[in-house]
């Protein structure tokens, strides 16, 4: 008997040790997160206002103001169109991830803007990029690809949101952060989601969060769905993604336990009285 107990304890200990080891190595988000030099200091830039007065030019040489796409959450992707690899991938994978979100409709619930930080980019390059990736045309409603009208604006815009990029002479490419910047409907920085790490769900949650609390604009049903997302998941800065909101779930459980206790007491007394 005693021996059995000892074995059982040993077995439990082994399982526990193994599971902690799994916890140690099971989820390693390090690959996904940007190298520290490119990582944005969230703390400094969250809540920063991106001025709606920036002028932009799209593939058809049409000019528009950044504020014209505000009013709903905006996903801002800073890329450069001469890029041969990463930028196209970043945008294409965003397209895939957004395509998987059925609850939110592009154009109506959010908009996307891909803007270039390369001062040599122009409307022609935007067009080329659109042809190469299929982004910015009619197949992607609510998604604009553009360049800044005034080249001086590039530095203010990128500095204003903490976006980092520098020209690498050796490789002849820009080294830059691959990040989706989620803006609130008012154009304030709400969340940085690193392209290689963010899932469709992370984007959905960030959009829900960014637009949450707008009085008047929302329908109750939309708000309920948003509320559910925000209540059950919260952004995890360490892992760079949305994770289950455990405290709230635990608290919910304890709330029900209160009801159960009342029921249990009545049940016990009734049985006692019957006997």
């Amino acid at each position: 008997m005693k021996r059995n107990l000892k074995t059982a304890i040993a077995a439990i200990a082994v399982v526990l040790a193994a599971s902690t080891a799994f916890a140690e190595y099971g989820r390693v988000p390090v690959n996904g997160i940007e190298p520290s030099v490119l990582r944005i200091d969230d703390d400094k830039f969250l809540g920063a206002k991106v001025d709606g007065a920036y002028g932009l030019v799209d593939a058809n040489h049409a000019e528009f103001k950044l504020s014209s796409i505000y009013g709903v959450p905006v996903i801002l992707v800073l890329s450069y169109y001469g890029c041969d690899g990463a930028c196209a991938t970043t945008n294409k994978s965003l397209k895939e991830k957004l395509g998987a979100i059925t609850r939110l409709k592009a154009g109506k619930d959010y908009r996307v803007l891909t803007a270039s930080f390369d001062k040599d980019d122009d409307a022609a390059k935007v067009r080329m990029f659109g042809e190469m990736t299929g982004i910015g045309g009619e197949s992607t409603p609510g998604w604009k690809t553009a360049v800044l009208k005034r080249k001086e604006d590039i530095k203010t815009l990128t500095d204003g949101v903490g976006f980092k990029f520098f020209w690498s002479k050796r490789d002849n490419v820009f080294t830059h952060t691959n990040v989706y910047i989620v803006l609130t409907p008012e154009g304030r920085v709400h969340r940085y989601l690193y392209a290689s790490l963010a899932t469709g769900f992370d984007i959905e949650a960030a959009i829900a969060e960014a637009r949450f609390g707008q009085i008047g604009a929302a329908t109750p049903l939309r708000d309920l769905a948003d509320l559910y997302t925000i209540a059950c998941y919260s952004y995890n800065y360490k892992e760079g993604r949305y994770t289950l909101n455990y405290p709230l779930i635990i608290a919910g459980g304890s709330l029900t336990s209160g009801f159960l206790l009342v029921g249990l007491a009545l049940f016990v007394y009734k049985r006692k009285a019957r006997r």
């Binding site: 969230d42 703390d43 969250l46 609130t184 008012e186 709400h190 360490k238």
Partner: peptide, 12 residues
């Protein structure tokens, strides 16, 4: 050390 934010809607 790691902080961040969740800015609600800023009405203007």
């Amino acid at each position: 050390t790691v902080l961040g934010a969740c800015s609600g809607a800023w009405a203007s």
